[in-house]
Design a protein around this nucleic acid. Sequence first.
RNA 1: GGGUGAUUAGCUCAGUUGGCUAGAGCGUCUGAUUUACACUCAGAAGGUCGGGGGUUCGAGCCCCUCAUCACCCACCA
Length: 878
Amino acid sequence: MKLPKAYEASNYEKDIYALWEKSGAFVANPDSGKEHFSISMPPPNETGTLSIGHALFITLQDIMARHARQKGMDVLWLPGTDHAALAVNAIIEKKLEQEGTNKHEVGREKFIEMTRDFVGNSRETMLEQMRAMGASTDWTRLRYTLDEALNRCVNETFVKMYNDGLIYRGHRIVNWDPKLETNVSDDEITYIEEKSKFYTFKYGPFEIGTARPETKFGDKYVVMHPDDKRYAKYKHGEKIEVEWINGPIIATIIKDEAVDPKFGTGVMTITPWHSLVDFEIAERHGLDKEQIIDFHGNLLPIAEEFSGQSIEEARPKIVEKLKSKGLLIKIDENYLHNVAINERGKGIIEPQIRLQWFVDVKKQVIPWKGKKLSLKEVLQSVIRDEDIELIPKRFEKIYFNWIDNLRDWCISRQIWWGHRVPVWYRNDTDGREETYVGVKPPTDHSEGWHEWEQDPDTLDTWFSSALWTWSTLVDPELAQDYSLSLDELLKRSKDYNAYHPTSVMETGWDILFFWVARMILATTYVTGEIPFKQVYLHGLIRAEDGKKMSKSRPESIIDPLDIIPKYGTDALRMALIMGVTPGNDQTWGWSKIEANQRFANKIWNIARYIEGVVGDSTDIKKPQPVSLADHWILTNLQRIKEKSTTDLDNYRFSEVYESLYQFIWNDVADWYIEASKAEVNIPLLAYLLEEILVLVHPFAPFVTETIWQTLNWEEGTILASKTLGPTIGSDEAKAKDFTEIQSIISEARYIIKALKVSGVTLYHTSDEFIEANSAVIKRMAGLQAVESVKEGKGIHLTNTKRISWLDIDESMANTYKTELLNRIIDQENMIKKLELRLQNKNYVKNAPKNVVKQTKNQIEDAKTLLDSIKAEVERFSS
RNA sequence: GGGUGAUUAGCUCAGUUGGCUAGAGCGUCUGAUUUACACUCAGAAGGUCGGGGGUUCGAGCCCCUCAUCACCCACCA
């Protein structure tokens, strides 16, 4: 025997993966003439190692890819990694900090070099981990967001948007992170609730509230709602003199509807430089904006004596000063408010006005379905018109809500790691300035002008990931030819034409806005096509206690690399699939892993048994059903194949997994193989094994391929390349007969067990059916014998119409009699319920005919059963 | 403030457009067995599907409402 007793995953997995990779089975072939199926792998951030979340998405996508291959499609699953600008930058800066230095000391060039080394190592580790997970990706098409061709796509997109007026540079309020010294987008911010002091100050005739007195130095506008009757006597634009922190100032009255009259006193002063709402008020009325806090979080000279002090240092002193001037009215110690922090790096956000690059989401210049739409409108249109389907559908509502709140997208970042903004500036000696926006740096040197200098900023990571579905399909060779326009480049790229739009995008719902929406935005704009037809959104994997896995609780984190060597990749994959549903989080459970390690071993042992039976048989190629069990298992196989195909097409992974589990373990192992021990059909066993291996392969690729390779029934083939074929025909009536055998066996087992007897014989009165199947019944029910007699006494089987009884003394059967009496009550209740249903005229009138017919059949069956149970009880009583 | 999801067996979860007596894994209990597998087999117990109301011949599933938990978005000076 070639297969050892138990499946030890770690002995095989590496070799199996190497075999697949060498075979080229995962390499897409656009010229194959087959229907194409393509998925872009969401490129993991190059920040170290893969997590259990990555393991989940690799498993889901791998099942999709392998399933498509089994249907005979040409599959491209394109792998890649993301440079993850902000996330990586934060890691490097932290490292520098630990080494007692910072990015300014090491300089931009050295910093980027360090980062390159770091991501290079991360990348290698992560690609190995993807292989360990069994990812059937096309490694010949591996991509990286900073590849030259992808970088070109980024620049091309930027330039195209700039020329269309969709990208502009402007002084706008942004979310400034003083810690990482960059701004971040609205979506990268999270809020934490904090208790802080809320101060009320006297401001001329008004009372104003604030949690941030240190921003108030420049406040010279006092704003109230135009309809607020309390302040009707103050006119818009009216000037009043008020005593303030550093002496008297002239304040101007502004009426604006942004003020909530019910909040506090209904009056506020504004700090346009450091608050979005204030900024917008200032914009509406053309007011001055003044910076109070610098980009490191310290006060500027406007604060006079407090200049240069940090926020934390200055705040109490400022309050003290206002108090001493008699301007402090009260302090609320228990004020709850939300503090904005940067998700990466956790710096506290200080809104600041900065000169930044933005994508205009409202300008209507994108040709879409014969109209000119804005980016925002295109985003809405593709979902509303069902060009793109979100799975589950409920995320559409969340998606629309996000778009409704969408503001212009700030795409420039002040970090060093990433795609440089493709814009250059130069001055001439008279101080005039020129700007150049282009895919490649400008090369001209004009008389009287200084050299061109590139904009120091880099682009938001999501700007480059937004192009991922198509930038990865651009031919890298062609991309070096800058005489080609982007349109021509796409047109001539074979992969782009074959694989775009991609079939499905599989990713976590947590990056629906960051990534999915932005891919739609950028791709519809540049290519005129949607990036994908469907979006399958998976949930988070929570720790065993139901809480999020978090670095602050290291014990909560499950590392796939700890699990794989011990339990095997297949066990991990199936544990992740068990009970998974789109959009819902799942809780980690060790019992799932253990259950699936056992399942892999079960498959192994089924193979091992069949291997032994098949031995050196040569005619295993012509399987035909003979016994009732043969027909039954083939009928079930047929059903399971159809079901798993449609279910997988509809992304019902958990259901497919579960029905395969039941089929293999219960039907094949516990019934069919056991029955085959009484009546063997060697070619059919071999056929069945092969079919099972193919069916489970997408879920458990390693154990199935290992079995296939070890058995080596078809020299030189690999299971990963096998397609699903038609099932051998079977007779349904015979299959149904086998279920009757199952009833006989189950009932016999049950009685024997309940009465704790052994060495029992089953008698029947020359019943041909039982006679013909006596070997299977005897073996599987654990009987001494199955014999035909003219008459006799014993405990009768009630679940079958065949007259048969077990050779057990009726006096032993009191326990069983109670059981029978209970079953009589059950059956009578059931019949009553069903008859009531039939008596209901509306039911008969409205329910589908087959449902009504089913009910009638049920009643008949129940009555037959009831009669036979009653007869048995009678026998006991007499 | 607006929105979403969850609530089904002791635990973790499935349950497709409403239609057989609501399922699985783990756990529990009772037995069996040593050449496919103790990573096994046979069997059992365990659920008024969060509460209330409604629609329907029929509701775990649809509608209303309440409760608890989790999450998302917006954000107030």
